[in-house]
Computed example of a mutant assay.
Amino acid sequence: MQKFILLGILLIQLQVAMAMEVSAGKLQTLPEFEFDGIAPRPVHVWLPEGYPGQAPYAVLYMHDGQMLFDASTSWNKQEWGVDEVASKLQASGQTIPFIVVAIENVSETRHGDYFPQKARTLLPEAERRKEHPFNRAELRADKYLQFLVEQLKPYVDANFAVSPDPAHTFIAGSSMGGLISLYALLEYPQIFSAAAAISTHWPGIKPGDDLPVAAAIRAYVEKKLPEPGSHRIYFDHGTETLDAHYPPLQKKVDTIMHNAGYNSPAWQTRVFDGHAHDENSWQARLAEPLLFLLGKNQDSLGEK
């Protein structure tokens, strides 16, 4: 019994030691939710300095929540610096007041949670019959978004000083998190008015794989893209490491956007030379998607 008590104490100490800290604003960890069909995970809410003094606030939902605030607790010792960047933008009056809801990932299930689930059904039948790990993988993005929309958002709307309407509800993420952010807007256009897909992992699986997953994702986007006028979408990528695979795929998506009638400032695709596929690069340019989503002068976006 004593061994179990000691183990419990050590686990508590480890959890305290690994608790994320922010250098601007404050971070709250929400109570545990009932999860249906996806693995349990922590959810945090970042509140800017002075909250709730500028209520009502907009809400930005972000994925990979454990990578957003504190490099000392992340697996690669990098972070997005969301608290610092968001605080500076709000303090300078460049954005409307907003909070950030950070949903942690579960590394073992991340790909299945974030891959746009309905896109797989658009693979040609012959490709779906192939003995390929992707065809056998369990995809849970629909359940993940159901949790976000039906459980998490109602809790946030009821317990924080926010505007619940689509005009003040946004979503953002990088890599596979970029795919699930876009998927969220396309599946729930009545909930989210804008999405930022940063370093979007358009291959969907390993780059260079011969299964035409990227084409299936594009077919889904083309099929589900809302009519222009009520939604805004931001894409970007770097030019190094994994991001080096994205330019030709992004151009094909850009063609879909253009043909659907999207133009600046409602749609923006940015290229950042020298940026890699990592949190340091996303931190370096984080102000750009935040200004696109939440900036007070959105009419001038995309004209740089």
Rank of each mutant, 00 (worst) to 15 (best):
I99A: 13
K143D: 14
V149D: 13
G81C: 02
Q94N: 06
E150I: 03
K130E: 09
K118S: 15
K88Y: 02
R128Q: 15
F160D: 06
E79K: 09
V82E: 04
M67H: 11
A126L: 08
V162R: 10
G177N: 00
E108L: 06
L145M: 14
Q117W: 12
G112W: 10
G112H: 01
P154F: 12
F98Y: 12
E125M: 07
V100H: 01
Q90W: 05
R110V: 00
T121A: 15
M67K: 09
A119M: 07
A172P: 04
V106K: 04
S87Q: 12
G112L: 10
A172H: 06
E125Q: 14
H168C: 08
D165I: 08
P154E: 02
F115R: 05
P116F: 12
S174R: 01
P97I: 05
D113K: 02
E127N: 04
W80I: 09
K153C: 09
Q146Y: 08
A172C: 08
G65E: 03
M176W: 02
P124T: 01
T169E: 08
P154M: 10
K77L: 14
F69Y: 15
H132R: 12
F134N: 07
R128E: 01
W80M: 09
L89I: 05
L148M: 15
P154V: 11
K153N: 01
G112V: 07
G173R: 03
D64H: 04
F134C: 09
D113E: 15
K143H: 13
S74W: 07
S163Y: 07
A167T: 13
H111T: 10
F98M: 04
N76L: 11
E150F: 06
S174T: 11
Q146G: 14
E84H: 03
E104T: 06
Q146K: 13
V149S: 09
R140G: 05
